[in-house]
Amino acid sequence: MTVKIGIWVPSYAWNLSDGGEQAHRVKRLKDYIVRCEELGFDVWDIDHLLTAPGLYGNAWLEPLSVLTYAAALTEKVMLGTGILVLPLRNPVLLAKEIATLSQLSNDRYIFGVGPGWDPKEFESVGTRISERGRRTDEIIAAVRELLTKDSASFEGEFYSFRDVTIEPRPMKHPEVWVSGGSRVPDENFHDRDFMPKSVLNRIANADAWLSRCSGTQDRLLRDWETVQNHVESSGKPRDAVRFAHCNFIQLSPGKTRAQALEEQRAHAVRAFGTHRSYEHLQECYLLGEIDHQLGRLKELAGHGMDYVVLGPLTDALDQLDFIAEHLQPELNR
């Protein structure tokens, strides 16, 4: 069993009024990225354009900008967006940003993408959430054209361009890792308790499925079986698409389950808000004692997961050391 670890870095966009506090957070982000490089953890960043009261307690800094910053601080680790909400973006501008990041990072970028879920984000940029899947597919296709061809042209439902050349282009197109999965239905959002065929097709044409942490472990494993079956039905080997997972975590070494959950409660509420109960958060995210957290990760690895992106709920550097000490050796036996 070999599971590569990436880390969601703490690019929190807290509503700060104290300039000194802001400087401290930027310094901590820098230290965090450098420590990831030292420990061999890939650097990933989250994309949330706006705050989502009751669901997330904060927004995050713009991810491609953060990863460009990370490229200057690192030399070896991969840099990934987990995930980039594609329907909020213009494909030509996005292709230029990716080309720039790829140039400055020596082609270390992983193009982690998804359709998003927050209606307000779509409204704020003049699109509609009902279009998110179709826009996502068009942008993936358009960006691929732009990053692989001179005088690229594209004609779609939402985006069109002719004879556009992006320079300098990456030496190779970044791997495309696609999110998506079933989720406990919520009347306020457009989530379903199944995986639509359009999502499965998107995953089957990608390099990896970046499964998200928005449901139970059983639902996640059910989704992976669905993905494999769909990949096979499309004429490809079941393992043609890599199984990756992203999840938030907070480690509490030496604590019992009750002690760990009590210690982690305030961090979880600050990060996720109060829309969901703490019990629900425990089902979705990697909370609790280390044996429980490791058990969940090993179960996923037993079903084929070979990459995990972990997001500590605080920017404390000791969380990275805890992951290196308690998780990394057990996931690489």
Results as ranks from 00 to 15, higher is better:
Ala23Lys: 15
Arg134Cys: 01
Met171Gln: 13
Thr68Leu: 14
Asn205Leu: 04
Ala244Cys: 12
Val43Tyr: 12
Pro10His: 08
Tyr69Ile: 02
His267Cys: 09
Arg265Lys: 15
Ala52Phe: 15
Ala70Lys: 03
His173Phe: 15
Asp47Gly: 12
Glu175Pro: 06
Lys172Leu: 04
Glu145His: 12
Pro87Lys: 11
Gly180Ile: 05
Ala258Gly: 01
Ile249Trp: 00
Arg128Tyr: 10
Ser234Leu: 01
Val3Glu: 05
Ala244Val: 05
Gln319Ala: 07
Arg257Trp: 06
Leu221Gln: 03
His24Thr: 07
Arg35Glu: 15
Glu131His: 14
Gly126Lys: 14
Leu88Asn: 07
Ser11His: 11
Arg132Gly: 04
Ala95Gly: 08
Gly288Phe: 04
Ser277Asp: 13
Trp60Lys: 12
Thr2Pro: 00
Asp193Trp: 10
Leu61Val: 10
Leu67Trp: 06
Pro87Glu: 04
Ser102Ile: 03
Thr2Ile: 02
Gln319Leu: 07
Lys197Asp: 00
Ala316Ile: 07
Val309Gly: 01
Thr100Tyr: 06
Asn58Cys: 15
Ser277Met: 10
Thr51Tyr: 07
His48Arg: 14
Glu62Arg: 14
Ser198Trp: 10
Gly273Asp: 11
Leu320Gly: 14
Ile323Ser: 07
Glu157Pro: 03
Leu317Asn: 05
Trp44Glu: 00
Val3Gln: 06
His245Phe: 15
Asp207Trp: 05
Leu67Cys: 08
